[in-house]
């Protein structure tokens, strides 16, 4: 099965959910399929679900939202750009992508 090499990064406290790792290199399948959607190229929705299932060490509710996205207060970057510019959940993950999950900070 073809795979994609992805670099995942965590900052702003997100790393606490990932055993304090700020950067994790992962290999994920290049296609996913589930009941609702037929086999399709891996997108951000798949990556987030995969990350929650395989990497989150504790309290997944601090990572996942209720719509297949991340919870509110987490900003996602695809190759140093706001993922909103790339299509958010529908963005098709590419081999070599750098995906960053940042928890927004409120302290001061």
């Amino acid at each position: 099965m073809a795979t994609l090499n992805i670099n995942l990064q965590f900052s702003g406290g997100m790393e606490l959910l990932f055993d304090n790792q700020k950067s994790i290199n992962v290999q994920i399948p290049s296609t996913f399929s589930d009941k609702a959607v037929e086999k399709h190229a891996t997108n951000m929705r798949d990556l987030i679900a995969w990350t929650a299932e395989n990497l989150v060490q504790e309290r997944p509710e601090l990572f996942l939202g209720n719509d297949g996205s991340v919870r509110s207060g987490i900003l996602v970057l695809v190759n140093d750009a706001d993922w909103e510019l790339e299509g958010e959940l529908e963005y098709e993950v590419q081999d070599g992508d750098e995906i960053v999950f940042i928890s927004t900070l409120h302290g001061g």
Binding site: R71, G73, L105
Partner: peptide, 29 residues
Amino acid sequence: SALRFDGQLTIYNYRGGPCYRCLFPTPPP
């Protein structure tokens, strides 16, 4: 904003850029 060893800086509502709610429509739990 700042916490622990991390900080963040953004200008909102400036020259066609987003506001805080464009980025974070709902408050964090």
